[in-house]
Computed example of a mutant assay.
Amino acid sequence: MRKAHIIATLFGAGLAFGLTTGLTNAAEFEIQMLNKGEKGGMVFQPDFIRAMPGDTIKFLSSDKGHNAEAIEGMLPEGVEPFKSKISKDFELTVDEEGLYGVKCTPHYGLGMVAVIAVGASENEDTARAVKHRGKAKKRFDSIFEEYDATN
């Protein structure tokens, strides 16, 4: 019995240490906001990320004049819409499972969009049903092809 008590105490101490030091398994991803990237002009690079709840996505203002904004209808239920300031880095912690659609407000029509897939994609049908204009529609087609290939 004494051995079990020691093990339980050590486990509890380890858990407390992990909680108080912020030790977690959360990953951190970076998305550059660019005037020109691997897939053309006005892009998030990468434009598709597969993450898990608790992960952090950092949008880096690599080129000036861009931001990151949630696309209406392309967020998991219960997630508050977000919109960063132009030319400023922005961090988003994705806590809810589902698809997060992101656009650069001034360059949305030029196709500057991204998708973050977090865990199970409960809102996939809703996110895919959102209508887009201009090059954004073509970019989403390409992103969803990549998404389908990873499922």
Rank of each mutant, 00 (worst) to 15 (best):
E80P: 04
G101S: 00
T93Y: 06
K85P: 00
P76Q: 10
G101C: 03
V94I: 14
G78D: 01
S84G: 14
Y100T: 07
V79W: 01
E97N: 11
P106M: 10
P76A: 07
V94H: 14
V79I: 08
G101Y: 08
T105W: 07
C104F: 08
V102H: 10
T105G: 02
K103M: 15
F90L: 03
S87V: 05
E96C: 01
K88R: 12
I86E: 15
E96G: 00
T93K: 15
D95T: 11
S87A: 12
E77T: 13
G101K: 01
L99H: 10
V79P: 02
K83S: 15
T93F: 08
S87C: 08
V79A: 12
E80Q: 14
L99Q: 11
Y100L: 02
G98W: 01
L75R: 05
V79F: 02
K103T: 09
S87D: 14
L99S: 11
L75A: 05
L92T: 10
P106A: 07
P106I: 08
E91F: 10
C104V: 09
E77A: 14
E96A: 12
F82T: 01
L99W: 13
P81Y: 06
S84I: 02
T105S: 14
L92Y: 13
L92M: 10
V94W: 14
K85F: 07
V79R: 08
F90M: 01
S84V: 04
M74W: 05
T93N: 12
L75Q: 09
L99Y: 14
D89L: 03
V94G: 12
V102I: 15
D89P: 04
T105D: 14
S87E: 10
E77P: 03
K85N: 14
E96Q: 13
S84E: 10
F90T: 04
G78Q: 00
L75G: 09
F82A: 06
F82S: 03
D89S: 07
F82L: 02
I86H: 07
E77R: 04
L92A: 11
T93E: 15
G78E: 00
D89E: 11
F90P: 05
F82D: 06
P106N: 02
E97I: 09
S87Y: 08
V79C: 03
L92D: 09
K103E: 14
L75D: 10
D95R: 11
M74H: 04
P81W: 04
G98E: 03
E91M: 12
V102W: 04
F82K: 06
C104K: 01
G101R: 02
G101A: 01
P106Y: 08
E80I: 00
C104P: 01
V94L: 13
V102T: 07
G101L: 02
K88I: 00
L99D: 13
E96W: 00
T93C: 06
S84W: 12
E77G: 05
G101P: 02
V102M: 04
P76E: 09
